[in-house]
Design a protein around this nucleic acid. Structure first.
Length: 627
RNA sequence: UGGGGUAUAGUGUAAUGGUAGCACAACUGACUCUGGAUCAGUUCGUCUAGGUUCGAAUCCUAGUACCCCAGCCA
C-alpha cells in the first residue's frame, strides 16, 4: 500500500527540520499569548488551533499565557473571557483543571522581576541607557523610513548613572513619560525597530495581577522573547506584522547571552534559552472585520448587542450563534497555514459548520412565515382511522407543553414506527405521527408530532401562480406534508388586499406517514406545524454584518461602517413544534428545510428564542435568482 | 524614495528540476419523504519578460503588484 504523503505546512516543516538537527532536543513547546485587552475572535482561533495543534501533534506542550505588560489597557473581564473561549475551543494547556478556571494559566507579569534583572545586566554591558527625551522628541529623532534617526543626547550616560536612574525609575521617583530605558542599537538602522527601541516606560497605574508593585512596565519587544525563553517555548509563533520585530527579539536574547556560557561559568552565568520566532499570515474573512479596534467600535457604538452578538466574529459570538468548537477546529485545519496574506471566504466557515451540524443536529419543524392551511375533508378520516391498538409508552400527560421532546431527552429515543396516537374525532381529531429525528444518525430515533385539521405552512411554500420548476403547493397540485399526508390544494381565501390568508386542501387518508399505497409520487415535500399545538417562538435571522465582501472598500471620504448590512438581523415570530416549548439554552437543532438554529440565552420557559446559525443550502433560491 | 515579506484556478492550499494535484465555490447529472445530505462528472490556474536546462511553478537576471514598519500599543 502506498500511503498518500500528508501535506505539511511550512511551520511543520520547520519543526521537522529542528527535530532532525536536534536544535531543541526534539522538544516542541508552543504558546498562545493574548493580551487581555479584548475578546478573542475567529482569527485567534486559527492561532490557538495552530499552536495547540502543533504541541499535540508532536507530543509537546502548549501554554496559555496572558501577555499583560500594559496595565492601562488590560482588564479582568477580558482575562475571563479569553480563558473561557480557549477552553471552549478545546485547547488544553499545561496545568489546566476543570474545577479551577485559571489553573495553569501563565502571566507575562509574573516574570517582571527577572526581566528587570536582565535590564540591569544590559545596562552593565553598556547596551541600554536611560533617556530623558519626551515622546514627541523620541518620535522626531527616530528619523523616517528613508532617513536615519539621530542619537539621543542621553545615549552616552555612564553605566553608574544609568543604573542609578533606572533604580529610581522603578522606585517611582519620576512621573509618567519623563524617562525611558532604551536599548543602544543603531539610530540609523534601516529597520526602524532597531533604532534604540524603548524597553521600559513609566506608568503609574495598578496592574490586574501585580497590583501596585510596579510603576515601570516592559514594552512588548523587550518582554515577549523573555516570556517565551523562561517558559522554554521552542517555537514562538506570531503573525506577519512581527516579522520586522524578529531581529529585535533575537537581539535582546543574544544581548543577555553575550558573555554567558553554556555551563554557567564566568561573570554572567548560564546562557538562556533562545526560542525561534516564526511568522504566519493572520486570518482574514470576507464580509466581516477582525481588528480589535473595529470590533470594539461596533460594540461601543451599539451597532451590535455586545461582544457575543451572534453576528460578531468573536468566539463568544460564534458560540451564541450556534457554532460548534469542532466545526471551528475543522475550519482552521481546512484553510491551512502560510505566509500569503489571504482572505478566506466566510462560506468556508459556514460550510464547516453545516457539515458538523448536519451530523449531530436533531431535525424539528418550525414555520418562520406562517400561512394557514386547512384540510377541508379532515373529518372524513374518522372512519378510516383504526383505533389505537395499544397505549402510548409512558402513558402520562398528553399535553403538548409537557411532552418532552424525544430528540432532546434521551429517554424518548428509539420509539420506532407505531400506530399513531389519536385523540378526538371529526374536525378536532389530532393524530400524533412519527418523525425521524436525524436521517444522518439512526440512533437519534424518532418522535411523535401532532397533526390536525389546521396547520401552518411556510408562505414561500405556496404560490398561486408558480413559475416553472416550482414544485411546492399550488392550486390543483399535490404535495407531501412531511411525515404526514399528501394534500391537494383546492382553493384559497384572500384578504381585501388580495393576499392569500388561507390555503384549503383535501387530504388523502391513505397516505398517512407520507407514502401512497398506490405508489404515486409527489414532487414536493413541505414542512408544517399543527396550529393547535404550535408554540410561538422568536427567531432571529442573521446575515453577514457587512454588505461588501471587503468592509474597507468604501467610496472616498466614507467610513467602513457605511458598509454595515442594515438587515443583518431580522426578527420573526415563528411557530415551532410543541417539543420545543422548553429546551435548554445552547441546544442546536435543524429546522427542516430552513437551516440550523440555536436556543439563545434570551429564551424564557415556554418562550424560546432561536438564533439562526446558518441556512441550509438552497438550490431553489439559486434557481429563482437566475430567473 | 529605506527595510522586511508575499505572488499557483473565483477563493484557499500542495507539488522542494521530471504528468501542475487537492479542498471550497461554480456548472451537469443521478438519487432523495429536507430543492438538505449523498454520489458521479465538467469547467477554470503557475504575476510579467528574458535566460539556464533534454525538461522550470521550482534555478538565474530584470521588472510588476500587494502587505508590514516611523506607539512610551501588542
Amino acid at each position: 500500500m502506498t500511503e498518500e504523503k500528508a501535506q505539511r505546512h511550512f511551520i511543520e516543516e520547520i519543526v521537522d527540520e529542528h527535530n532532525r538537527t536536534g536544535r531543541f532536543g526534539g522538544k516542541v513547546v508552543t504558546r498562545f499569548p493574548p493580551e487581555p485587552n479584548g475578546y478573542l475572535h475567529i482569527g485567534h482561533a486559527k492561532s490557538i488551533c495552530l499552536n495547540y495543534g502543533l504541541a499535540d501533534e508532536y507530543g509537546g506542550q502548549f501554554n496559555l499565557r496572558m501577555d499583560d505588560t500594559n496595565p492601562e489597557k488590560e482588564e479582568q473581564e477580558y482575562v475571563n473571557s479569553i480563558i473561557e473561549d480557549v477552553r471552549w475551543l478545546g485547547a488544553k494547556w499545561v496545568g489546566m483543571r476543570e474545577d479551577h478556571p485559571t489553573a495553569g494559566v501563565l502571566w507575562g507579569s509574573n516574570y517582571f522581576d527577572q526581566m528587570y534583572a536582565w535590564a540591569i545586566e544590559l545596562i552593565k554591558k553598556g547596551k541600554a541607557y536611560v533617556c530623558d527625551l519626551t515622546g514627541e522628541q523620541v518620535s522626531k529623532s527616530r528619523g523616517t523610513l528613508t532617513t536615519p534617526g539621530t542619537n539621543s543626547p542621553y545615549r552616552n550616560r555612564s553605566i553608574d548613572e544609568n543604573l542609578d536612574l533606572f533604580e529610581r525609575m522603578r522606585k517611582g521617583e519620576f512621573p509618567d513619560g519623563v524617562k525611558t530605558l532604551r536599548a543602544k542599537i543603531d539610530m540609523a538602522h534601516p529597520n526602524l525597530n532597531l533604532r534604540d527601541p524603548i524597553m521600559y516606560r513609566i506608568i503609574h497605574a495598578p496592574h490586574h495581577n501585580t497590583g501596585e508593585k510596579w510603576c515601570l512596565y516592559p514594552m512588548y519587544d523587550w518582554a515577549h522573547g523573555f516570556e517565551d525563553s523562561i517558559e522554554g517555548v521552542t517555537h514562538s509563533i506570531c503573525t506577519l506584522e512581527f516579522e520586522n520585530h524578529r531581529p529585535l527579539y533575537d537581539w535582546f536574547i543574544d544581548s543577555v547571552n553575550e558573555g554567558r556560557t553554556d555551563d554557567g561559568s564566568g561573570p554572567w552565568g548560564k546562557k538562556i534559552h533562545h526560542p525561534q520566532q516564526i511568522e504566519f499570515a493572520r486570518l482574514n474573512l470576507n464580509y466581516t472585520v477582525m481588528s480589535k479596534r473595529k470590533l470594539l467600535e461596533l460594540v461601543k457604538g451599539k451597532y451590535v448587542s455586545g461582544w457575543d452578538d451572534p453576528r460578531m466574529p468573536t468566539i463568544c459570538g460564534l458560540r451564541r450563534r450556534g457554532y460548534t468548537p469542532e466545526s471551528i477546529r475543522q475550519f482552521c485545519k481546512d484553510i491551512g497555514v502560510a505566509k500569503f496574506d489571504s482572505v478566506i471566504e466566510v462560506v468556508r466557515l459556514e460550510n464547516a459548520c453545516r457539515d458538523h451540524l448536519n451530523r449531530i443536529a436533531p431535525r424539528v419543524m418550525a414555520v418562520l412565515h406562517p400561512l394557514k392551511l386547512v384540510i377541508d375533508n379532515w373529518a372524513d378520516g374518522d372512519n378510516q382511522t383504526p383505533l389505537p391498538v395499544r397505549e402510548e409508552l409512558g402513558g402520562g400527560s398528553t399535553s403538548p407543553d409537557t411532552t418532552p421532546h424525544p430528540t432532546l431527552s434521551p429517554e424518548g429515543r428509539g420509539v420506532g414506527k407505531e400506530t399513531p396516537r389519536i385523540e378526538g374525532t371529526g374536525d378536532n381529531r389530532v393524530e400524533w405521527l412519527d418523525a425521524v429525528n436525524n436521517p444522518e444518525d439512526a440512533s437519534a430515533g424518532t418522535r411523535k408530532v401532532p397533526f390536525g385539521k389546521v396547520l401552518y405552512i411556510e408562505q414561500d411554500d405556496f404560490m398561486e401562480n408558480p413559475p416553472k420548476k416550482y414544485f411546492r403547493l399550488t392550486p390543483g397540485a399535490e404535495v407531501r406534508l412531511r411525515y404526514a399526508y399528501f394534500v391537494k390544494c383546492i382553493g384559497v381565501v384572500k384578504d381585501a388586499a388580495g393576499q392569500v390568508t388561507e390555503v384549503h386542501c383535501m387530504y388523502d387518508p391513505a397516505t398517512r406517514g407520507g407514502d401512497a399505497p398506490d405508489g404515486r409520487k409527489v414532487k414536493g415535500t413541505i414542512h408544517w406545524v399543527s396550529a393547535a399545538h404550535a408554540v410561538p417562538a422568536e427567531v432571529r435571522l442573521y446575515d453577514h454584518l457587512f454588505v461588501n465582501p471587503d468592509p474597507d472598500d468604501v467610496p472616498e471620504g466614507q467610513d467602513w461602517k457605511s458598509n454595515l448590512n442594515p438587515v443583518s438581523l431580522q426578527m420573526v415570530h415563528a411557530f415551532v413544534e410543541p417539543g420545543l416549548a422548553t429546551v435548554p439554552i445552547g441546544t442546536r437543532v435543524q429546522f427542516e428545510r430552513l437551516g440550523y438554529f440555536c436556543v439563545d440565552p434570551d429564551s424564557k420557559p415556554k418562550h424560546p428564542v432561536f438564533s439562526r446559525t446558518v441556512t441550509l443550502k438552497d438550490t431553489w433560491a439559486k434557481i429563482e435568482k437566475k430567473a
